[in-house]
Simulated assay, not measured.
Amino acid sequence: MRQHTDGPHGGTAADVLPPVGRLYDDGRRLFLHRSGSGGPAVVFLPGAGMVGLDYLNIHDAAAEFTTSVLYDRAGTGWSDQVPLPRTGAEVTDELRRLLHAAGVPTPYVLVGHSLGGAYARHYAQRFPDEVAGLLLMEPAHEDWDAHMPDPRLMVEVEDPHAAAGEGTSEPGEELLQQIRELFTQMLAGWPAPIRERIVDLHLDPVRGRTGPREKNFRTLYGELRRAEDTPDVPTIVLTAMALDPMMSWFMPEQLERRMNEGKRALYEALAASVPHGENRVLDDAGHNWLHAQRPDAVLQAIRDLLDRADT
């Protein structure tokens, strides 16, 4: 892979270049931001619809005591656009090539959020010798449906633009303002120039609407079931039990509470399924922004995993 710091494919530098980090090219450009030194390196795998810099608060703190890496999958954030969705194998192969090209030495503590949590587990299944620990924040999981309420009561979780009745057309000004205010609030601790670029990206009509297009759960869950067992590495699951502000746009509160109870049981089972697993319940954080609402809990989990990896 080649490193790039100048104008990318299909746009001007002002339009597409990330505010920090670099673009690495092996036929498509992938964003990666690396800070700190030492190991094991901490690598963040964003949730669907999220980008690497959404986790900058934890990244900067972790970089004070180890190497920390943020990145955007192809088709998301500041990385090049590709057809979505993709398989778990494609995503994990891509991440492995990128980390090797960036010279990030193994092993890694993978920090996966939501969809990124499923990818983190799949990476560990496929490349167990490269993983020293797993932090799974509200991870997508192949047994999700079995723990959820009656499917007839479920509301499909979609892009909030579409959920608000906008379909595939441009969202209305009122919804755009709500989205902007929420992202600005959650990213309040980020440096202002970087925060503004992240919020603008999330509101972009193309690059900011990747969440629903990334989800390929039937294929991904099949890959997880067919793969080797998750390796015997320290694993911490973070379960967020508070109501999430984004969920209120398209899900009744009572249904979200019922989903949370099913989720707690699922994540308890996930933690118990590995020899060194632990589930930590956060009553004051929601699914999408737990790392902004409880950065202390996320950072403590990373420290604990690094300590356990050393022993």
Score class of each variant (00 low, 15 high):
residue 174 E to W: 06
residue 214 E to P: 01
residue 70 L to N: 07
residue 135 L to E: 00
residue 81 Q to W: 00
residue 216 N to R: 08
residue 220 L to H: 06
residue 235 T to M: 06
residue 105 P to H: 12
residue 185 Q to W: 00
residue 305 L to H: 07
residue 292 A to I: 01
residue 52 G to R: 11
residue 81 Q to E: 06
residue 104 V to T: 14
residue 48 A to P: 00
residue 119 Y to M: 15
residue 33 H to Y: 10
residue 152 R to Q: 05
residue 265 A to L: 10
residue 142 E to S: 09
residue 168 T to Q: 08
residue 4 H to G: 13
residue 261 E to L: 13
residue 219 T to A: 15
residue 170 E to L: 13
residue 80 D to K: 09
residue 27 G to M: 08
residue 37 S to R: 11
residue 253 E to C: 01
residue 18 P to F: 01
residue 179 I to G: 02
residue 295 P to L: 05
residue 251 M to L: 12
residue 215 K to Q: 14
residue 47 G to R: 03
residue 198 I to A: 04
residue 14 A to H: 10
residue 58 I to P: 00
residue 3 Q to S: 04
residue 238 L to A: 11
residue 138 E to Q: 07
residue 304 D to P: 00
residue 231 P to I: 14
residue 89 A to S: 13
residue 68 S to T: 08
residue 281 V to E: 03
residue 188 A to E: 03
residue 128 P to L: 01
residue 158 E to V: 10
residue 12 T to W: 03
residue 11 G to D: 03
residue 273 S to A: 15
residue 261 E to Y: 02
residue 169 S to E: 15
residue 67 T to G: 11
residue 293 Q to W: 03
residue 193 P to L: 06
residue 95 L to R: 02
residue 165 G to M: 12
residue 78 W to H: 03
residue 168 T to N: 10
residue 210 T to G: 10
residue 112 G to A: 06
residue 124 A to H: 08
residue 303 R to N: 05
residue 181 E to A: 08
residue 282 L to W: 02
residue 18 P to I: 10
residue 147 H to K: 02
residue 87 T to S: 15
residue 123 Y to Q: 13
residue 28 R to W: 03
residue 81 Q to G: 04
residue 180 R to A: 09
residue 142 E to K: 13
residue 288 N to S: 06
residue 95 L to W: 02
residue 272 A to K: 14
residue 76 T to D: 00
residue 204 D to C: 13
residue 4 H to V: 15
residue 198 I to D: 00
residue 158 E to W: 00
residue 296 D to L: 12
residue 26 D to N: 14
residue 234 P to L: 08
residue 201 L to T: 03
residue 243 L to D: 14
residue 288 N to K: 05
residue 185 Q to M: 07
residue 65 F to V: 07
residue 45 L to R: 01
residue 59 H to V: 12
residue 31 F to D: 03
residue 134 L to I: 05
residue 122 H to D: 01
residue 175 L to F: 09
residue 68 S to Q: 06
residue 276 H to Y: 03
residue 84 L to M: 10
residue 21 G to R: 00
residue 95 L to S: 04
residue 292 A to T: 03
residue 137 M to R: 01
